[in-house]
């Protein structure tokens, strides 16, 4: 009698490409939240200022950007106070950047634990995205405080109705950061070259992502090609548009960014899935 038996799971050489195994991820949801908790709780252990570091970094960056780009280099930010312009850009940019850089060394950083025990590997980058979301929340809170301050001191800024789409902006950033991060982390397992690329590539990307330099500046210098095909630039510009009411948003830009984000995200999952099976042999 060789009837079909009920196997719980099967270990095979190859995964199905899109086999995300969501059921299993769901079974490990507690682990996801414990990793988030670990990331949040342990980062600033044994520091005096603790979570204040979450605020210090964007504030000081904004101050320096304001001094350098707006006071010294005299770059105009239209009707928006330069400090708020920079802070809005940096807050959004930081979320994307953190998602990207922290997920991009998932395999390398966790090889000790991955090499010993199995759990759905995708839990790791997911936990990064979620814990960064908390960090983003705190930074966004400080942005709101300054926002209110500038409103009450007479600046003409107002959000528009599209601010309701802001969660989608966040989702796009998360998908883009996570997707790129997963692709890079998968390739780093074999080719370490990419680690070097990420660290300075992200820095360079910031300059063409409209974080501190406004779109009008690129237009004046006929350099719009540098930002038009950069989905991150569209995201930053869009978020500034919905929060501060000023910015150049095109339908093409919105659709382009949405499509790129989804494609990068799906491709990231595909590559990650393919790699997780036996990366431990090559890393």
């Amino acid at each position: 009698m060789n009837k079909e038996e009920n196997w719980l799971y099967e270990i095979n050489p190859k995964n199905n490409l899109f086999d995300l195994n969501l059921k299993e991820v769901w079974r490990y949801r507690d682990l996801l939240f414990l990793f988030v908790k670990r990331d949040v709780v342990t980062v600033y252990k044994q520091t005096i200022l603790g979570p204040l570091w979450y605020l210090i970094q964007p504030l000081f960056t904004s101050i320096v950007f304001t001094l350098v780009f707006n006071k010294i280099a005299n770059i105009s930010t239209g009707g928006i106070p330069p400090f708020l312009f920079n802070l809005a850009g940096i807050t959004s940019w930081n979320y994307f950047k953190d998602c990207l850089t922290e997920t991009s060394d998932t395999f390398k950083k966790n090889q000790a634990i991955f090499g010993k025990v199995y759990f759905p590997r995708v839990i790791m980058p997911m936990s990064v995205v979620i814990s960064n979301l908390l960090k983003f929340g705190i930074q966004f809170g400080i942005f709101i405080c300054f926002y209110l301050y500038f409103v009450f001191s007479g600046s003409v800024i107002s959000p528009n109705i599209y601010v309701l789409t802001y969660p989608i902006v966040l989702l796009c950033m998360a998908m883009l950061g996570l997707g790129l991060g997963m692709i890079i982390s998968s390739m780093v397992t074999k080719y370490r070259d990419l680690t070097f690329l990420v660290s300075f590539g992200v820095q360079l990307l910031m300059y063409i992502s409209l974080v501190s330099l406004p779109y009008s500046l690129f237009k004046e210098n006929n350099l719009t090609w540098a930002v038009d095909f950069n989905p991150v630039a569209h995201i930053i510009e869009y978020s500034r548009f919905v929060l501060l009411g000023e910015g150049s948003v095109t339908l093409f830009g919105v659709l382009y960014t949405l499509i790129i984000s989804v494609v990068v995200f799906l491709f990231g999952i595909l590559v990650f899935n393919k790699t997780e099976k036996s990366f431990i042999d090559t890393i």
Partner: peptide, 14 residues
Amino acid sequence: SRVTGPTTGSIKTK
């Protein structure tokens, strides 16, 4: 323990 995958073959478990 599923730390790495086999090159060929399969394992079934209940």
